[in-house]
Design a protein around this nucleic acid. Structure first.
Lengths: 228, 228
DNA sequence: ATAATAGTGTCTGTGAGACATTATACC
DNA sequence: GGTATAATGTCTCACAGACACTATTAT
């Protein structure tokens, strides 16, 4: 037995976005064995001289065409001995949160990429252990909206309070009180800062536009309502 | 370029305990190159047929002699190309929280294991990127005490409210108000449950003994006081 | 008695949840 | 006018922080 047996190391990405009030995840249809024809998270092998985070950014760019303005953080690693029937593989999973991207995808590796509603994707019999990874990614995103300003990663550079609230509602899957939400996010110093502009693209009274502030941790947090 | 270059995969452990009001981490003195003679986190190579979590438990047992009653959770993975000068290595780091263990260590691999105060260990010029891993582990532990009942993992099966408070004070490095703390932990349903026994080993009035309850998430959380 | 720790009680300010109301656009 | 969304305001209750006080042991 060698003291350091060979492993393959991959990165897999849970890329989430919010569009039309729904939380979507980017999946690719596998063209090769194993799991040919099944949906999977985008990902690939880490190259010999490449940092893990660089590999994640590279895959993100290959699948979406965009890396700027996308939040990326490490999620967890998955390494069950038989998780890939071809060889012993450890996958380092990453969570990416992106604003509604220009076009679903285009060309290259991403030929068969599709956006699927996140909760629905969990029931789609994903390849490998990707259902587990996706579930962990969704839960991470839901939890982090509570105590970080990360919801702004789903928004355009300038956004209204109503659009920000729509992000929370889509990710958490439940409605929030618009008035209490407005008071909370505008009252937390550094969470969002007004730009002075306004918009009325959503109909109704024009809304102030905001940019994300410098706040890193939201204290006290913005907690999810009880599930029922 | 092969499509899946060979990597070595290791597990490294941040094993924390609280003793005499101090947060301690278990370190080992390296006997071999690279970094011979330097302190490092305990760890080792993942075996070909072994799950990542199993490897972490195995290393935990080899270093401490104990696995039962120890909380173990995955921390993060570290894979910078030059982090190990011997070969391309990805380390999956784990965080272990243990009650004050019977004896520091004994025999076998753990011949040179030592408990070091956690904050002090950060300045000890640890091998590899272990200072980064340790810093992440300490911060994870500090954060999780806020919203989980994980502090009980540092306690014996039966403990007093004062002992539990001492854990919080050691991990957070600041004093807490004993009266507000008592009200909070006894008032959170399912956090700790009274056993009916009492003890006076700590001097003063005898204290009620408690066991950890079934609560998984502490809501509302027990927040750290502001740093200053 | 003194010291030490355990446990209970009181007051106050912050802030979340539940609502009402007004403001400003488009039709 | 009606309808849509934005923004502000009010009331109440839960709870954290600050701090006083009582309880029970050991020396």
């Amino acid at each position: 037995m060698p003291s350091h047996p060979p492993f393959a190391v991959t990165v897999d990405l849970v890329i989430l976005t919010v569009r039309a009030g729904r939380l979507l995840v980017l999946l690719v249809e596998r063209g090769e064995q194993p799991y040919a024809g099944r949906l999977a998270l985008p990902g690939g092998f880490v190259r010999p001289t490449e940092d893990l985070e660089s590999a994640a950014y590279r895959e993100l760019g290959e699948e979406t065409g965009v890396t700027a303005g996308v939040h990326l953080e490490q999620l967890a690693s998955y390494g069950a001995p038989q998780r890939d029937p071809r060889m012993r593989t450890v996958s380092v999973a990453w969570l990416a949160l992106a604003p509604d991207l220009p076009e679903p995808v285009a060309g290259g590796d991403a030929a068969h990429a599709v956006w699927v509603e996140a909760t629905e994707a969990l029931g789609r019999n994903l390849a490998f252990d990707h259902a587990n990874i996706l579930a962990d990614g969704i839960e991470r995103a839901r939890a982090k909206l509570e105590y970080t300003p990360l919801a702004t990663a789903f928004c355009a550079p300038e956004f209204t309070v109503g659009q920000l609230r729509a992000v929370y509602e889509a990710v958490w899957g439940q409605a929030l009180d618009a008035r209490n939400f407005h008071r909370k996010v505008t009252g937390a110093p550094g969470f969002i800062v007004p730009t002075g502009h306004s918009t009325n693209v959503d109909g109704g009274r024009p809304a102030q536009l905001y940019r994300r502030g410098s706040l890193a941790v939201l204290n006290p947090p913005l907690v999810r309502p009880d599930s029922p």
